[in-house]
Every structure is written in structure tokens, then in C-alpha cells.
Nucleic acid binder design. Structure first.
Length: 214
DNA sequence: TGCCAGGCCGGGT
DNA sequence: ACCCGGCATGGC
């Protein structure tokens, strides 16, 4: 399935955006939000010279919220950004690289301890910012695998993550691009409550679910 | 015009 | 252990 998507769509070159801090910020801001909204919020942060740990720590939460308004849930996400920045600042000052330069297990545990960072956001940061192998599962991943009968509805985040991590060679570029391909397919061919995926790169693979509830 | 977007949390059963 | 409402702007 990866080869089929890759052939049709080409390498997705994820994460879109620049540098490890921007990846972390984007991962939090894009929670249940389209990436185009995140782009304009990130542009605001850059224009306000706030794309550093120090500036994000210094800026008042209310002002930060205004800068990221386009992402929606902006008050909530301002809080979540602050929580993440506090974790980095506690041990590493402004040095995001040093914060990320630790084992994936330690990183994941610390990230999950932050209010506002759940499994997908943590894994996105580990895979795309720290560049360590940690497969990212999102709603598209769930949906696509469910439609193809590869998982059951009650399989949780960890079960789906395990399926990928135990099956694929442990390769950061492969895992990163695989997730990116699934998002591309999800956005364009596998939308919510739509049974048919006309022209989908995965059309050749069996669809066991003909009446999707998701 | 309504539905959806690259989730996560807190409170209620 | 689940289930649900809340969070909110922008694009199609």
C-alpha cells in the first residue's frame, strides 16, 4: 500500500515547515485543525519574532492567543504551547535541540506528561522534530485501515501504532513518509462518511467496509 | 449552509 | 473503562 501511494503521489517531504521548534509548534496547533490555518498562525508568530523558545516563554498567554487565532481553539492552544515551552525551558533553557536530543522513550513519556499533548502530537514531535522512529497514528490512519479491513473499530491508538511499528522496517524516513501519504490519501480520497474513494491510490486493495460510520 | 479539519481534556456514567 | 461535550477559525 505504501508503494502504491508513493508511486502515485511522490515523496511527501514531511514535516512541512522549518526547523524542530516550528515542527513542535505546528504539531500542537494542528490538533483537529487544517494545516492552512496553522500556516497563517505560524506566519503571525514569525512576523512577531516569536518563533523561539525564549520569546514564546516571555510573551503573555493572551497575546500569544491573538497571534494564533486563525487555528481555532486559540485560548486553549496558547495554554498548550505554554505548557510545552515550560517543559523545554525547565531543563534546557532555549535549546530545543538539546531537549530533543534524548531517547524516544524518555521524550515520549515527558511529552505525554504535558497537558495538551496526547499520543499523536507526541509521536509527531518525536518522529519529525527529533527524527526518532515513532509511528504517528491519526484519524485518517484509523479510517483508511478500517475501510480496508486491516483493523477493527475498537483498536485503540497503541494497537494501530504497534501494527505499523512491528511490521515495517524501523526507518525514520519511511515512517514519516508513510504517515504523510496516509494523510494525503485521507484528505483527497477518504473523507468522513464517504463510502467510495474514486481514483484513490489504494483502490486496488480490498475495501471490506462498504458503509463506513466514520 | 452545514460540515469538516493531521486531538485532547475533564467530567459524567 | 468508555462516552460525551467543549474548544473555534477558515475553506469548500
Amino acid at each position: 500500500m505504501y508503494q502504491a501511494m508513493r508511486q502515485r503521489l511522490g515523496h511527501q517531504q514531511w514535516w512541512p515547515g522549518d526547523g524542530p521548534l516550528e515542527v513542535c509548534i505546528g504539531a500542537i496547533l494542528t490538533q483537529n485543525t487544517s494545516w492552512s490555518n496553522v500556516e497563517s498562525a505560524i506566519a503571525n508568530l514569525k512576523a512577531a519574532d516569536c518563533m523561539t523558545v525564549g520569546r514564546l516563554d516571555a510573551i503573555p498567554r493572551e497575546a500569544l492567543a491573538e497571534l494564533i487565532r486563525p487555528v481555532g481553539y486559540f485560548k486553549l492552544k496558547a495554554k498548550r504551547l505554554k505548557n510545552f515551552i515550560a517543559l523545554v525551558g525547565e531543563g534546557f533553557g532555549d535549546d530545543i535541540e538539546a531537549f530533543l536530543d534524548r531517547s524516544g522513550e524518555v521524550l515520549r513519556q515527558q511529552l505525554l506528561g504535558v497537558n495538551g499533548i496526547g499520543p499523536e502530537t507526541a509521536d509527531s514531535i518525536i518522529l519529525y522534530a527529533a527524527e526518532l522512529p515513532s509511528f504517528v497514528v491519526d484519524t485518517y490512519t484509523h479510517r483508511i485501515l478500517l475501510r480496508h479491513g486491516l483493523i477493527s473499530p475498537q483498536d485503540d491508538y497503541q494497537a494501530v501504532k504497534d501494527l505499523f511499528e512491528w511490521t515495517l522496517p524501523q526507518d525514520v524516513d519511511l515512517w514519516g513518509d508513510f504517515h504523510a501519504q496516509l494523510v494525503a490519501v485521507g484528505k483527497n480520497f477518504c473523507r468522513r462518511r464517504r463510502p467510495l474513494c474514486e481514483g484513490c491510490p489504494l483502490e486496488q486493495f480490498p475495501h471490506d467496509i462498504t458503509d463506513p460510520t466514520d
